[in-house]
């Protein structure tokens, strides 16, 4: 573990990404103490104020403090990201491992299910699921989670197919290791690298998807401070008041970007074969 951290540290970009994510995480946790105003409170007198000493990021059309809303928005984004991606990673990886390792009709069944899910465009599929389930934060996370299941299932399946014929798997079989142990101890660790990269990418996409669905009015309720909703509302005002759109936009970009570069770093650090090359 110490070793892993050492290798991760050598990748400066990844560390920057990690630090930004940490900051976003801390902001989300301590939002209550960091925000000068209540993110829900409207203040018609101070509507559409440009950024100044009082309102650091300005105010929106209802006079709500944009800085406070962005800080609270981190909660929604991270929650959606973690839960939705966690769901698709766990479900997708298990499906992929089973499909790849067992083969035969099980593989066929699982692969066809992922094919069907894959044949819809991401946002459209999420829209359909949301339309069926109704809009709420939980359903939003579930919908985004379902949309990304097939990606994980496919990556996991492909990697398993690649790994399961290797000699060390045969060696494990010849020693009488149980299939479930082989999957867990030999196949999963060797299949993790592409999955971790996919986690970070999907995390970024999940944040975007939340923003997009909220922008379309299918996400959380409109008064909730979510980056997507803020952006959606800002579209009517941004020609006059740029700050209403710029700040939530920067927040989304920063979060997505950090997850991507951290993902690259993680992948490199997790591979023992790349170790010692830079030291």
């Amino acid at each position: 573990m110490i070793d892993f951290w050492k290798r991760f540290k050598q990748n400066h970009m990844a560390v920057i990404g990690f630090v930004i994510i940490l900051i976003i995480l801390l902001t989300a946790i301590f939002a209550k103490w960091l925000t000068p105003y209540d993110p829900y409170e409207m203040d018609p007198v101070n509507r559409l104020q440009s950024p100044n000493g009082e309102f650091w990021f300005g105010t929106d059309q209802f006079g709500r403090d944009i800085f406070s809303r962005i800080v609270y928005g981190a909660r929604i984004s991270l929650q959606v990201g973690i839960i939705a991606v966690g769901f698709s990673f766990i479900v997708g990886t298990i499906m992929g491992l089973i499909a790849g390792y067992s083969g035969g009709w099980v593989d066929n069944l699982i692969s066809r299910i992922t094919d069907v899910l894959f044949s819809f465009p991401d946002i459209l599929l999420a829209l359909v699921i949301m339309a069926i389930l109704g809009s709420s934060l939980n359903n939003l996370m579930l919908a985004i989670g379902i949309v990304y299941v097939p990606i994980f299932a496919r990556i996991a399946r492909g990697t398993v197919l690649n790994i399961k014929d290797s000699l060390y798997i045969e060696a494990a079989r010849s020693m009488g290791v149980r299939p479930i142990t082989i999957l867990w101890r030999h196949i999963l660790p060797n299949a993790m690298a592409p999955l971790i990269v996919q986690i970070t990418l999907s995390f970024a996409f999940a944040i975007l998807a939340e923003a997009a669905l909220s922008f379309l009015g299918l996400g959380v309720s409109p008064d909730t401070p979510s980056w997507g909703i803020m952006l959606s509302e800002a579209k009517d005002w941004m020609e006059l008041s740029w700050w209403t759109a710029i700040f939530p936009g920067i927040a989304i970009t920063l979060a997505v970007f950090s997850f991507n570069i951290m993902g690259d770093g993680l992948r490199d650090a997790l591979d023992p074969r790349l170790r010692n090359e830079k030291s």
């Binding site: 290797s166 000699l167 060390y168 060696a171 494990a172 660790p189 023992p272």
Partner: peptide, 13 residues
């Protein structure tokens, strides 16, 4: 069993 290819028969991780 002892395998032919010692590069592939040991789990790299």
């Amino acid at each position: 069993m002892i395998f032919q290819d010692p590069y592939a028969s040991l789990n790299p991780r």
